[in-house]
Write a protein that binds this DNA or RNA. Structure first.
Lengths: 212, 212
DNA sequence: CGACCTGTGTGACATTGGTTACTGAAGCGG
DNA sequence: CCGCTTCAGTAACCAATGTCACACAGGTCG
């Protein structure tokens, strides 16, 4: 799996740029949990994710984290682009969610590539897509109550899901006890059926209504 | 005041495009409070603000609003760009904060202009700049307590400020009573001195510490 | 089997922020 | 001065969420 397979934009670059770039991209593999970048750190380059995935999170004072978005193979990291373009430091943390292979496009080369219409367009559109996600997130954390957010989260995971309450809490930036309580409430309303590491969605429509 | 005075990027466009564009930009003036765009509405075009300003806000269910950012003359609206590029609907509301003059670049022309390197670059950089602001906002609403956010807000307004508690509450997406309570607390700690429509900052360092 | 670990259930409590409902003070126009 | 409006202070109460402490169930492993 080469970068160009997952990021076809690279094929559209002129020959000279492309070879220079491919040469600079040294894929590396890191274990799950590796912190790839962190708040207040300067941005070293633009990550192409080849396998695995990066979880981008904001840290709270008490150690909890709020997930912002994930970067899967072929996708890209809006925060990295933003920092590279604005020459600013990171304002979030990026963690390898599983064992992850990625190639880092060095900052200098990124600057040069932004001059290429094809590449610029690529970054451009990734910006546009992610903005909507961030707006959605702002709406959630600012206005939605936890039960709505949890209902929404469950709906995005299929009918029969296998997770722990702790994991769900992490994805919401909350705590296990709250998730347990809310799920119990959902169960009492007949929306879900609960089991150990197991949640079955009985009434998707009801959950959707609750999610607002 | 023409668009090109405030948005010099327009001067960099090739002659044909520029004349076409200038012809299409019909400035209009709207009174304070005009809703220029709103959630779930398709984006008609890209606004160039010539005078006044646009306040972009997220609406809560109960009618309160959370300010996202403002667009002043010469600046631009990241949400509009995002919606135009992603062909998505607006996900926030834009309100004229004062009497505002603006020229709307129609969607079709925007699409065409994105093909122009100079214009694309312009939109590009505005994206990068605003992302950091949005991240900051997410951090605030997700993690910061109201006293921290208020302290931060006060610090951004100079030593001696003339506002009502209600206005501050609006800027925080909160309510007057809370602001009054917190300000009283600040006053008791000697951080500020209060008066009718008047707040004097006595201890900026203390406030900064509180803001974290 | 018995120690142990993980996931879950649960109740008491604290904190934060918002709501309701007043009170009073300052300023203004008549 | 009187009445009105706007701004500010304040107390009681409530809802949402988080914290703490612990109990219990099911599985694993020695």
């Amino acid at each position: 799996m080469t970068p160009a397979d997952l990021y076809p934009v690279l094929l559209e670059l002129p020959e000279t740029k492309r070879t220079e770039l491919i040469a600079a991209l040294q894929p590396m593999t890191v274990p799950a949990g590796t912190v790839l970048f962190d708040e207040r750190q300067p941005c070293q380059g633009f990550p192409f994710v080849l396998s695995g995935g990066i979880r981008v999170v904001k840290l709270a004072a008490n150690g909890r984290e709020l997930p912002l978005y994930k970067v899967l193979p072929g996708e890209s990291c809006i925060i990295s682009s933003s920092c590279l373009l604005g020459h600013a430091d990171y304002n979030a943390r990026g963690v390898a969610e599983t064992k992850t292979t990625l190639a880092l496009l060095p900052r200098k080369l990124f600057d040069a590539l932004v001059g290429e219409p094809a590449f610029r367009n690529f970054v451009f559109h990734l910006f546009a897509e992610r903005i909507a996600e961030l707006m959605q997130l702002i709406e959630e954390v600012a206005f939605r109550k936890l039960d709505q957010r949890l209902a929404n989260l469950l709906l995005g995971k299929g009918r029969q899901l296998h997770t722990t309450h702790q994991q769900l809490a992490d994805e919401l930036g909350s705590v296990r006890e709250m998730v347990s309580r809310l799920l119990k409430g959902f169960a009492e309303q007949g929306l879900v059926r609960l089991g150990r590491e197991q949640i079955e969605i009985l009434d998707p429509a009801g959950l959707r209504r609750l999610a607002g």
